[in-house]
Design a protein around this nucleic acid. Sequence first.
DNA 1: AGGATGATGGACT
DNA 2: GTCCATCATCCTA
Length: 189
Amino acid sequence: MRGTGALEEMLVGPPEEAAPRLLGCHLVSTVGDETVKLRISEVEAYKGPDDPASHAFRGPTNRNRSMFARPGTLYVYRSYGIHHCANVAAGPEGIGWGILIRGGDIVDGQPVAVRRRGRTAELSDGPGKVCEALAIAGEHDGHYLLGGDSPVWLEPGTTPGLVVATPRVGITRAKDRPWRFVAAVSASS
DNA sequence: AGGATGATGGACT
DNA sequence: GTCCATCATCCTA
C-alpha cells in the first residue's frame, strides 16, 4: 500500500516547510526489474513564482509542467545536458512549487546502484547521482509518486532527529534563502 | 585538498 | 548565442 494520506499531507504547505518533511522518507525505483531504495537525507525547496531560482519562476512551460501538476508528481529534468535531477511537486496543484531530491543513502539494492554508478562510494550524494543510482530519467517525468502504479515512488520513513538548513547549492539567484535541508546523522556512530 | 574544465541538451533572450 | 538546481577528471600545490 503506497500513497497513504500521510505522504500527501507532507506535501501540503509552502515548500520550505514541506521539504524537510521528506527527509527520512524513501524514494524507490524499480527499473529493469531491479529495485533500489534511497533514504532521503538532503532536499531543497523551490517556490515557483516567488522564487527566481526555480524553473517554475516564469510559469509553466513544456519542460516544467510536472511541477505544476498534483502534489506528489515527479518532475525530472536534464541538467547540463548530462545528468537528470528529480523533484517532487508540492503545494496546491497549479502553483509550481517543488522539492529537489539532492541526496540520500542507498538502503536497498546497493549492488545495483554500484553497477549503475560505476563506483562503490559516493553513490547518491548529489541530485545527478541519485537519478543515476535509481535509474530515474526523462521517461519518469510526470509519474505520480504516491500512487500504486509507478516505477518510481515514495514511501514513508522515520523522521531524522536533527535537520540543518543552509543556502541552496549551485544556483545564482536567491542565494540567500536557506532552503536546503540536510538530515543530521542520527544516533549511533 | 582544492580549483578549473569539458561534456552536452534544452529553455530562454 | 547564453545560461544553467551537475559531475568526473585533470590539473596545481
